[in-house]
Amino acid sequence: MSEDVTLSILRFRPEVDREPHFQTYTVPYREDWVVLDALNHIKDHLDATLSYRWSCHMAICGSCGMMINGEPKLACHAFLRDYRHDGIRIEPLDHFPIERDLVIVMDSFMEKLSSVKPFVIAKEEKPLSDGEHLQSPLQLMAFKQYTLCINCLLCYAACPQCGLKEDFVGPAALALAHRYNLDSRDDGNDQRADVVASNEGVWECTFVGACSEVCPKHVDPAAAIQQAKISASLDWFKAWLLPGAHR
């Protein structure tokens, strides 16, 4: 069965292009191919200049995020057979500057990620001789879901607030902050609050929920952010009622 699939890909080469423009390619249809396989076919056989990020090909590294027919998806997670009848339109992830072709500039995300201090901030530093932090299964369950983020940025592409306000810390970074705030070994809530509880943090979110819908690892950043709003509000009132009682 010799079927072909047409891909329409947004190209942008800063050294020659003033504006991005679509370029179409025809690749063979294979029942088991994902969009990433089609891109690799293009790069190997049709057009070596096409640039895109990818690595694991199994939806765990988070590299190959792109807009596929207007929806943020991992290219390794989108099967050709699901798009066969529609034609496939591929663009770089929304809400990020385009570096080249399907490669986006993610520097802003890297800054946002580090700004939430995504590491255990212990109450007191334990000497090694004291042994490990002990954590029960119940304590792990409290935050485990939010550890699954692969930083693929699909949530940033889906979130309209990320499009409307560049400074918005964003779903993945806020979900990761929540992951640490819920960790029983951590006492860094206060230190993260200047970012998390700022106007550019959880308060920019209007619970559209698109982030959680597109997340390939079911992290549910939307839930994390709403929970963080409630705890930020309670902290705010505690601080207001008991000023100076900063942890």
């Binding site: 700004s115 609050a193 200047d194 970012v195 509880a197 700022s198 106007n199 550019e200 943090g201 308060w203 709003k229 409630i230 930020a232 509000s233 705010w236 009132f237």
Partner: peptide, 15 residues
């Protein structure tokens, strides 16, 4: 960035 005073608007919103 600093902690926002949004909670004063948000809690009555949620209620």
């Amino acid at each position: 960035m600093a902690r926002s005073n949004k909670p004063i608007l948000w809690l009555p919103f949620a209620g």
